[in-house]
Structures are given as C-alpha cells and as structure tokens.
Simulated assay, not measured.
Amino acid sequence: MLPARTYSVSIACDWRALYERIYRPEFFPEWASGLSDSELHEEGDQWLADGPEGPIRIRFTPHNAHGVMDHWVDVGGGSTVHIPLRVIQNDDGAEVMLTLFRQPGMDDEKFAADIKWINRDLLALKTLIERTAN
C-alpha cells in the first residue's frame, strides 16, 4: 500500500451546485495549476494535456450524484497516478477533499512539494468559487 494523505478546503457554496460547476474536465485548468498552462483536448475517454513534466493523459470519473471527481493521470512510461477527489456536504457549504498517494521512489522533498502544490490549488479553487459567487 502507498502512504496517503488527504487534504481539504471548505467552500461557501452548496455542495451539489459546486460539483455541477467544477466536475467537467474543462474546468480543471482554471484552478489546478498543473494544467493552467494547457488546454485539455478530449480523445475518446481520455483527455490530453501538457503537464509540468511533459504530455499527460487523464481519465476522469463520469458525472455522478455522489460528488466523486477521481481522475487517473498517465504520466508516461507505464505509470498512472490515481487522484481521488470528492465534493461533500459540509452543513450548507461544501468540503473538497483530495487524497495524495506517495508514489514509489518519491523522496521526502518531492512529497512535501506535492503537498504544498495540492493545498495551493485547493485554496485557488476556494478563492475562484467564493469570489465569483459574490
């Protein structure tokens, strides 16, 4: 089993409305910095993008009633990274939770950098949603 950590952000928005706004792959570049400089292109059941370390393929969970936004990133060389992402109800708002799995061979420095990156992206999502809701 891979070591894992889950990070979350509370967003002042109904969880279902939030999910409906952000579940589409085309919305990810607006807040996910690893995709911000890339346009996603759909190819079959996958999306192609330019990631920070080169071209990537991403497969997203289909739209659902449960707030599940998991995605699988094929970074090449036969390596695929699963990224569980959920939108859940938090009273009259929402909690967005992302689980980071420490990949085999990932050193402490790279894992710490990924943790900072995830938290920065979650805060960017919160800011984007709450700023446009007012």
Rank of each mutant, 00 (worst) to 15 (best):
L128K: 14
V96Q: 01
P55D: 11
I58E: 06
H71N: 14
Q103A: 13
D91A: 13
K116V: 06
A12P: 00
S79I: 13
G67L: 04
T127I: 14
R86S: 06
H41R: 15
I115N: 02
A12C: 06
Y19A: 03
L40Y: 01
Q46L: 10
T127A: 13
T132Q: 15
I83W: 02
R86Q: 10
L125N: 06
A4F: 02
A65Y: 03
S79T: 14
H66F: 11
I58F: 04
T80W: 02
V87D: 00
P3V: 07
L125M: 12
E30Q: 15
L128Y: 00
R59K: 11
D14L: 05
I56Q: 09
H63C: 09
V81L: 12
T99E: 11
I56D: 05
N119V: 10
F27L: 07
A65D: 15
D37M: 13
M106E: 15
N90K: 11
P84R: 01
L128N: 07
R16W: 04
I83T: 11
G51N: 09
I88Q: 06
M106T: 14
M106W: 05
M106Q: 15
S38K: 09
R16T: 08
G78E: 10
I56S: 03
K116Q: 13
D45Y: 03
D37F: 09
A113N: 05
L40Q: 08
F101M: 08
N90S: 13
H71S: 06
M106H: 02
H63Q: 11
A12F: 02
A65S: 12
Y23K: 03
P84I: 04
S10G: 04
M97F: 00
I83L: 10
D108I: 03
Q103S: 05
G76Q: 07
T127H: 13
Y23M: 01
L85D: 00
G34A: 12
K116R: 14
I56P: 05
H66P: 00
E30M: 12
K110E: 14
Y23T: 03
D74V: 05
G105D: 14
R24N: 05
L128G: 03
S8E: 11
S38V: 12
Q46E: 15
A17M: 03
H82D: 08
R16M: 06
G51S: 09
L35T: 10
D107I: 09
S79P: 00
V96E: 02
R5S: 10
E53F: 06
S36N: 14
A4G: 02
L123Q: 15
N119H: 04
I83H: 03
T132G: 05
M1Y: 05
L2I: 02
L48T: 08
L122Q: 04
R57Q: 13
R5E: 15
D70M: 06
D91M: 05
A4T: 10
L2D: 07
S8M: 01
G93Q: 08
